[in-house]
Design a protein around this nucleic acid. Structure first.
Length: 594
DNA sequence: GCCGTTTTCGGCCCGACTGTTTTCAGTCG
């Protein structure tokens, strides 16, 4: 992936920040802040860092200055940064990762280093257990225990959750609280990176508004929830617990009803987005915190009850949480140009699903019944069983696809409407050929082409060949990644998006929790290039149809409106679109002499 | 190190919790 270099650079800059923080002092503290901000910005850039340097696009980016640009140049040329190498000589390197240990920060680490010359994690544990640390100012038994415990926790705490795991956990916890003490709760919500829809979530932030007299009771109820394994902190307005066998961290923050909007904004972030908002507030002589927007001089409260109110006071439109990443949304909101993002209500049908004909668990009728019951506004369901090459999934031969079409017609007759569409997820073979003949493909209602083998090699050409088929309507799970288990196969996504735009081929946003493929960044590129997107669940079980929520969140993070998404259209329009796609592909092939 | 609708110098977002203190420093988000 093109962004791996961005990650490497971001890591290096973050390390520099760590080292400056360790060295301490006011100047270094702010240097550390600056480096950390630059690292975050670079990690979230949609394109490879080198292309920004070439185009001189970095000057405009908030948080990156001239000095950092020079250091990036140096990194691109030599693979490292001199400043980093210098700092490494002043700071014992093994100590730096220890700053991630909960309860252990740069100041404490520095204190221990100066007093006992510790060099490694083992030195640290030894000193903490020896009792010598109590000579130092600020060290008592509880603090020592806390750090030792933090060292144990570190391994499990660094694991991140998939979006879907976090979402279901957050909803369960909120529902349980609602059931137990609902009468005390005025409003509740999840905030943080979960509300922004990031693909992995570090910890879950919950927010509850209630009258202050109930706060203690609510904190108690929260720390006593059934799955709570450990209480990390519990005060009057906030508490932090570890939940479930995976010991996921969940933070709860209690606020008063009139603070709801300001608090929700504050805890939704992102951090960089919030900092920008507070800077805007300051420019007006105001102060923005989790309690509201205030006039600095008079302390008069200007807004805070709802998010809309706070944004309005700042002369901005309300910004959807999925956009709050400081990637241009603040400027859009100031100019009142925030797009109306796609929502699940705009979706007229699921574009990829599997039945018992291949590797799904439900019959076609069962699928249709479930979907119509839970998504009554859907107008169609595209059935896309695997093709023969995918043996392990029981892929169908052309003959079997024809038989399946007959069953679909029976089911539709029973439903009294043309609800189920006969599609296929046709395998793209290693040589780029498709696993089904064109005679069959052109009879089908919708054709998704996907790769299910040879993940190691560069698959750009394979996908491009599939796009050149007039009867292929979309590319399924385009990068093939499985979060936490499989890297995306090597691809030139820029080139693929270009060919998709030229041939009119759509790209899928697959909503399976461990796929989320395309991801938000690629989906954004596709949208910008005018490539249509389809949102689908790739359902193999009835519960999977709800993954549409995931696909929608990715599309929203890519700033997509309904018009960017093919399956927000009625089927009749999709039929017309398919004809367009076929002729566009023919034109492109003629032009390029394929 | 970054940044500018008070600034090219002098600020830099803000508050809760904990453990140690007896008014505060460090950590965290």
């Amino acid at each position: 992936m093109t962004t791996s270099r961005n990650r490497e650079l971001a890591k290096l800059l973050a390390r520099i920040a760590d080292m400056y923080e360790f060295l301490g002092g006011d100047t270094n503290r702010f240097r550390a802040l600056a480096y950390r901000k630059a690292a975050q910005v670079i990690e979230n850039l949609p394109e490879d860092i080198a292309s920004y340097i070439e185009k001189h696009d970095l000057q405009k980016v908030h948080g990156i200055g001239q000095k950092t640009i020079e250091k990036i140049r140096e990194f691109l040329k030599t693979g490292t940064i001199k400043k980093y190498e210098e700092l490494r000589k002043q700071v014992p390197e093994a100590l730096i990762p220890l700053m991630d240990v909960p309860g252990l920060g740069p100041k404490t680490l520095r204190q221990l280093y100066e007093a006992f010359h510790i060099q490694t994690e083992d030195d640290l544990i030894h000193i903490l257990k020896s009792g010598k640390v109590y000579q130092l100012k600020g060290f008592g038994p509880k603090k020592v225990q806390k750090i030792l415990h933090g060292l144990e926790l570190r391994a499990t705490l660094t694991q991140r959750m998939l979006y879907w795991e976090a979402l279901t956990l957050a909803r369960t916890l909120l529902q349980t609280l609602q059931d137990r003490i609902g009468t005390l709760i005025q409003k509740s919500a999840y905030a943080g990176s979960l509300r922004r829809g990031k693909e992995t979530i570090g910890d879950i932030d919950l927010l509850i508004s209630a009258s202050p007299q109930h706060h203690t009771t609510i904190i108690q109820a929260f720390t006593q929830l059934p799955d709570v394994k450990e209480v990390l902190a519990a005060g009057e307005t906030k508490a932090s617990v570890l939940v479930g066998d995976n010991r996921r961290q969940v933070d709860l923050r209690l606020i008063q009803p009139h603070q709801w909007g300001a608090a929700l904004m504050y805890f939704t972030g992102s951090k960089n987005h919030n900092v920008r908002l507070r800077e805007l507030a300051r420019a007006h002589g105001w102060k923005l915190n989790e309690y509201g927007l205030f006039d600095e001089a008079s302390n008069k409260r200007l807004a805070g009850t709802t998010e809309e109110e706070v944004f309005a006071q700042l002369n901005m439109q309300w910004i959807p949480p999925e956009m709050r990443e400081d990637q241009g949304e603040i400027e859009l909101a100031l100019n009142h140009q925030i797009p109306k993002l796609v929502s699940i209500q705009d979706i007229r049908g699921d574009m990829q699903s599997h039945s018992t004909w291949s590797d799904g668990s439900l019959s076609i009728l069962e699928m249709a019944d479930y979907v119509l019951k839970h998504f009554p506004h859907y107008e169609y369901l595209v059935l896309t069983d695997h093709s023969q090459a995918v043996r392990i999934a029981g892929g169908l031969s052309p003959e079997q696809f024809r038989q399946q079409k007959e069953e679909i017609q029976k089911v539709n007759a029973e439903l009294g409407r043309d609800f189920v569409k006969a599609g296929a997820e046709v395998d793209i073979l290693p040589n780029g050929q498709l696993d089904l003949p064109n005679e069959l493909l052109k009879e089908l209602d919708f054709v998704i082409a996907s790769i299910h083998s040879h993940f190691q090699r560069d698959n750009t050409d394979r996908i491009i060949q599939a796009c050149l088929n007039p009867y292929v309507h979309a590319i399924g799970h385009p990068t093939g990644r499985l979060l936490g288990t499989r890297e995306p196969y090597p691809l030139n996504m820029e080139q693929i998006i270009e060919v998709c735009a030229q041939t009119g081929t759509a790209l899928e946003i697959n909503g399976q929790p461990d796929r989320m493929d395309l991801n938000d960044q690629y989906a954004r590129w596709a949208r910008e290039a005018g490539v249509p997107l389809i949102l689908s669940t790739d359902a193999h079980y009835s519960s999977n149809f709800h993954y549409m929520e995931i696909a929608v969140v990715i599309a929203r993070r890519a700033w997509c409106t309904p018009q960017h998404i093919l399956n927000t259209r009625p089927w009749q329009e999709i039929t017309l679109w398919k004809q367009e796609k076929a002729s566009k592909t023919q034109t492109y092939k003629t032009k390029r002499h394929f």
